[in-house]
């Protein structure tokens, strides 16, 4: 399923960030994608199921969450953090600002696949521990 992906701040992400970014809380707050309920049924996923997010630059597995801000069919939201930024696009169109919002992304169900922790994700993607 094709969606427009938006990334941004949430209160839970802010709270966890202040507690330190290594740990389960940070993952719970940020390794998610918030979806329109109708999109969820089209995609065949339920709250808490794993979903693969793919863009031109990469892919990441996160947990599906029902959006409290619906309806917004075709628009998916990820809190800012290493999971979202693993799929944010390249370049800044000469403005200095990367394309954090409005990324074309493909979603597919990935039930049962493991959601990496921040440490694992960083180690795997960037090769440093």
């Amino acid at each position: 399923m094709e969606v427009t992906l938006i990334t941004g701040r949430t209160v839970a992400q802010g709270e966890e960030m202040e507690k330190g970014k290594i740990g389960e809380g940070f993952k719970r707050a940020c390794a998610v994608v918030e979806l329109d309920p109708e999109d969820m049924s089209k995609l065949g996923v339920h709250e808490g199921d794993e979903v693969r997010v793919e863009t031109g630059v990469g892919e990441v597995v996160v947990v599906a969450k029902k959006s409290r801000d619906a309806p917004h069919p075709g628009v998916a939201f990820m809190p800012m953090g290493p999971w979202a930024n693993a799929v944010v696009g390249e370049g800044t169109a000469s403005t200095g600002m990367p394309p954090f919002k409005g990324i074309k992304a493909k979603l597919s169900p990935a039930k049962g696949e493991r959601v990496l922790s921040a440490e694992e994700l960083v180690a795997r993607v960037y090769g440093r521990e």
Binding site: K19, G20, K21, I22, V57, G58, M80, G81, P82, N85, A86, V87, V88, G89, E90, P98, P99, F100, A118, E119, L121, V122, A123, V125, Y126, G127, R128, E129
Partner: peptide, 30 residues
């Protein structure tokens, strides 16, 4: 490392990096 796009972080991971922070973060990790 958490908040920049992947392509930026890929270069950051290649070069010598000094990190100053209060908590451990994905940036201090690399």
């Amino acid at each position: 490392v958490s908040h920049f796009p992947r392509k930026s972080v890929e270069h950051l991971a290649k070069i010598p990096l000094v990190a100053i922070d209060i908590h451990p973060t994905p940036t201090t990790q690399i």
